[in-house]
Computed example of a mutant assay.
Amino acid sequence: MTVLRREQAEAVLARAGVAVQPVELVTVLPALRTLLGGLRRGQVVAVDAAGVLPLALLAGATAAGSWSAVVGLSQFGVLAASDLGADLDRVVLVEDPGDQWAEVVAVLLTSVELVLVQPPVQVGGQLARRLVALARRHGSALVCVGDWEGAQTRLRIASSLWVGAGQGDGHLRGRRVKVEASGRGSGARPRSAWLWLPGPDGTVSGADLEALEAG
């Protein structure tokens, strides 16, 4: 048996005259595309902690017209999400689902394109498989704040620096962070990017040396 990488398999099919349909993705903000490209429907992205990063994923999806839901984020920043570009008219917020959080997520996976959830416990085993199966069946992307057993992609902030404050004076103007992505399968290759999260204007943009010099 010959095992081909995805690119090789697509090339073989192309030579045979078989068109390969691209995987439909839920849109992410342009600054995040070097890390993700997009959110694959039917897969789980685990973000290490609550904050601006999961809100940025929500912002990219809703700004592109996708309906999204937020479950269990008691500190969901409505203004912060709006500043990042989220279309709040396309967001369903379930702030405190209680012990029924998994049932709430299951229902929402059948009706919106992106579900952002902060489970009260680590998710694994049969529950994780059931929710992922629902996401695949209905073409939804699932973003988990915290750990999720079997997540295809994991995002974490490896370094963070607020800028703007002087020696005890001034105002914080933005945060420059290094975001690392890892995973398995086609997303196994580690990737990283420096981002403004958020930048001085409240948005998400590139913050590597080339972007800073251009700015």
Rank of each mutant, 00 (worst) to 15 (best):
V91K: 15
A151W: 05
L58F: 05
R156Y: 08
L116E: 09
G124M: 10
V121Y: 07
R41P: 06
Q75R: 15
P54C: 02
L25A: 06
V104P: 10
V145I: 14
G164C: 00
V112P: 12
V112C: 13
G60T: 03
S111A: 06
P97Y: 05
L93G: 11
L116M: 08
L109Q: 04
A80T: 14
L57E: 05
A80V: 13
V163D: 03
G38D: 02
L161W: 11
W101T: 02
E113S: 15
P97D: 09
T62K: 09
Q118Y: 00
L25R: 14
L58W: 05
S74Q: 15
S111E: 10
Q100M: 07
A128N: 05
L131A: 02
E103I: 09
V104A: 15
L161I: 08
R156M: 10
V145K: 09
G164F: 00
V107K: 07
Q126D: 01
L131C: 03
L93Q: 07
G146L: 10
R130M: 03
P119Y: 02
A63V: 00
V105M: 08
Q43D: 12
G37S: 07
V28M: 14
A165T: 05
A81W: 05
R41I: 03
C144I: 15
A128T: 06
V45C: 08
D147Q: 14
V28C: 14
S66M: 01
P54W: 04
D48G: 08
A56N: 07
E95Y: 06
A46W: 01
E95W: 12
T153P: 10
A59F: 09
G124K: 11
V143S: 07
V121Q: 15
E113P: 08
A56S: 15
G166Q: 00
V71P: 05
D99K: 14
R156C: 07
R136Y: 01
E103V: 12
G77M: 10
V47Y: 03
Q100D: 15
A56G: 01
L32M: 11
A31V: 05
C144M: 13
H138A: 03
V71I: 09
W148F: 15
E103N: 07
G60R: 03
P120R: 14
A86S: 08
S160L: 10
D99L: 14
D147N: 13
A165G: 01
D96L: 08
D147L: 08
L35W: 04
V70E: 06
S111P: 00
L109E: 05
P119L: 09
H138G: 01
A80F: 06
V91G: 13
T62L: 08
L73E: 12
G65K: 05
A102N: 03
L127F: 07
G51T: 04
V91Q: 13
L55T: 09
A158K: 00
V71D: 13
S82R: 11
V94Y: 06
F76E: 09
A69D: 13
A59G: 04
